[in-house]
Simulated assay, not measured.
Amino acid sequence: MTESATGMSRPPVHTLRSSPAYWRVTFDNPPLNLYDPEVESALAGIVDRLIDDPEVKVVVFDSAVPDFFMAHLNLGRIEEFGEGMPTWFALIDKLVRAPFITVGSIRGRARGIGNELLAALDVRFAAKETAVLGQLEIGTAIIPGCGGMQRLPRLTGRARALEIIASGEDYDADTAGLYGWVNRSVPDAELDALVERFAQRIASFDAEALAAVKEILDEQYPQPSAESLAVTNARCSPARRFRNGCAGPLRRRRR
């Protein structure tokens, strides 16, 4: 059963309830799948619904826009997100702490906040021919401020995270798989079947056992603290840069 996130004829985020245990969340904000305030509002509402549903065991996030999973934050509307992007951090905190398993099915480009969303999910699968991941912020003299600085090293290790963030380059699916950034890179023709099999298998298992798996793994590999995320976001954030003309490099700390 397909459900819309809002009353719009073409909502920017919509859901498919494949079964009580298995949901899909699809980003549909052409042409670039930018992270707009409307996307944020719709996504926050969907996350709340998922959290409130005790039957949900697995949620797959994908895109209806072939060339873009999510291009990046819409910087032209940065003021509309609020100082410190409180809605973003609240919904991501709910996702990472949710008892259900979250899965990214990646086709097209996932840069900036698009990659930061994927890094906050539990599992990621990417289409070999089309998936492109990156943190492009350094090119505008800012840093990833929505979790990338904290979560990317948990996936790739420090050295590769530094390479990705400091270069601002795009990385293909095979390289992302080699780096541990995604779980697996597979041919595009095989991606849907892989994700579907994985999600359906999880949906068949015991909910308490799945929740325990996430909880114990997060104890061993802790999620970043709210304080760390807030400090990083505040340090020459996109909002401050574009509001106050922060065009130069970040202030260097004295040693």
Rank of each mutant, 00 (worst) to 15 (best):
A5Y: 06
G7M: 05
M8W: 07
P11T: 03
P12Y: 04
A21I: 01
V25K: 11
P30V: 08
L32N: 15
P37Y: 08
E38P: 09
V39Q: 08
A42S: 14
A44S: 10
A44M: 05
I46H: 13
D48K: 10
V56G: 03
K57R: 15
V59I: 11
P66E: 08
M70A: 14
H72Y: 07
H72I: 12
L73V: 14
L75T: 07
E80S: 09
G82Q: 07
W88G: 02
W88Y: 10
W88S: 06
D93N: 15
V96R: 15
V96S: 11
R97M: 08
R107E: 07
R107N: 08
E116K: 06
L117T: 02
A126M: 05
E129D: 08
V132A: 06
V132S: 04
Q135W: 00
L136F: 04
T140P: 00
G145S: 01
G145F: 00
G148H: 00
T156C: 12
R160Y: 10
E163M: 13
A166N: 13
S167F: 04
G168P: 07
G168A: 11
Y171N: 10
A176N: 08
L178Q: 15
W181F: 13
R197T: 10
I202M: 11
A203C: 03
F205H: 15
L210W: 04
A211H: 05
A212M: 12
E215V: 07
Y221S: 14
P222E: 11
Q223Y: 14
A226S: 12
T232F: 02
T232L: 08
N233L: 05
P238E: 02
R240T: 14
R240D: 15
A247W: 09
G248H: 04
